[in-house]
């Protein structure tokens, strides 16, 4: 499986021979590529083999899927069509979704995905593009549709990948964070912004609760939700201008009915080291780039872009996502 950084001429050659590519790189580089079987997103930070963290403005990260991909479809979804993503995905395969930070399609997907038809019955993963901590230039954050080279800041670009009948795909997520031992909070509904939460069963204004607990939002503050045993993290936004008075804003949605706690690092956590199948695609949160002294050791088997939101069905933060492709196994249940 070809994975790594390549120059524009090298990627152009792969596209020319019909390779199926998932790309990540500087938007100016992606814009130079010819049309073909690829999608891409803008970022300039990458993790390479041997847990090397790099910034590159002259090379593109390639996940080359040609060895495993059967048929593919490349589609662009806007907020009114993204709900079709599971229906459009192949029954046996996986789909990679790339969206720009702040896009309307991202907001729609992140809040409502669990209500989409066929949710979780097809494999959906992906990532959010954004210029590195540059909130002043959101326009250079793009998802790119390789079918025609179009750049998208408000729509999502998807590659649906079919696999041969004897293969299966599975998406996985991990994070060294776990739920802390503090208060349990549950929100009333899905959203990027909340007013109230049930704190240990008692409804309160969540902003007032944070103030009463003297939570310092000027530093990284993560809440961790328990999704039947998988922990999904979201950040409290540091920029409280978006809070609109009595509300609190998050960088990814919180989900109504899910138990959240403030997150803490699990010092006993060990990265996954054995895999059922081959890793064909992986990505990880940008925070792992900015704090390598803490997180680099968890990423020794991962290669790909650093991202501003990670998708494994749901949108989440501070996660590593990877897709494996393995050989199907007939079930051996007794009858």
């Amino acid at each position: 499986m070809i994975q790594g950084l390549y120059s524009v001429p090298e990627v152009t050659e792969m596209i020319g021979r019909g390779d199926v590519l998932l790309l990540a790189g500087d938007v100016d580089l992606l814009a130079q590529l010819p049309a073909g079987k690829w999608i891409g997103g803008s970022t300039t930070r990458f993790i390479l083999h041997a847990d090397e963290l790099v910034e590159s403005h002259d090379k593109i990260f390639v996940h080359n899927l040609s060895e495993i991909a059967g048929e593919i479809k490349i589609s662009v979804y806007d907020p009114s069509t993204i709900s079709n993503i599971f229906d459009d995905a192949y029954d046996n395969g996986f789909s990679v979704l790339i969206m720009a930070w702040g896009s309307d399609t991202l907001k729609e997907y992140s809040i409502n995905v669990s209500s989409y038809h066929n949710f979780a019955c097809k494999v959906i993963c992906g990532w959010i593009t954004k210029n590195f901590f540059d909130n002043e230039n959101p326009d250079i954050s793009k998802a790119v549709c390789g079918k025609d080279g179009s750049l998208h800041s408000n729509s999502g670009v998807v590659m649906h990948v079919a696999l041969p009948a004897d293969k299966y795909a599975e998406v996985h997520t991990f994070s060294p964070f776990k739920q802390g031992k503090g208060d349990v909070f549950m929100f009333e509904e899905n959203g990027l912004q909340v007013e109230n939460a049930c704190i240990n069963g008692i409804k309160q204004n969540f902003r007032q609760y944070l103030e009463s607990q003297k939570i310092d939002r000027s530093v990284e503050c993560i809440v961790a939700g328990d999704f039947a045993g998988t922990i999904m993290n979201v950040y409290l936004l540091r920029d409280q201008k978006s809070d609109r008075g009595k509300y609190v804003s998050f960088s990814a949605p919180v989900y109504g009915g899910v138990e959240y706690r403030f997150a803490e690092i699990d010092l006993s956590y060990e990265e996954p080291t054995s895999f059922e199948g081959d890793i064909v695609f992986s990505l990880t949160c940008i925070t792992n780039y900015t704090q390598p002294e803490v997180f680099k050791k968890y990423l020794r088997n991962m290669h790909g872009p650093f991202t501003y939101g990670e998708i494994a069905y749901h949108l989440m933060n501070h996660a590593t996502i990877y897709v494996t492709v393995g050989n199907v196994q007939e079930p051996v249940y007794a009858s």
Partner: peptide
């Protein structure tokens, strides 16, 4: 939430259905 599941799709589906 009482059992330790292996399959991510099942976990997110169960969380959704429970809600």
């Amino acid at each position: 939430n009482e059992l330790t599941w292996n399959f991510l799709a099942l976990k997110v589906m169960l969380a959704r259905l429970k809600l």
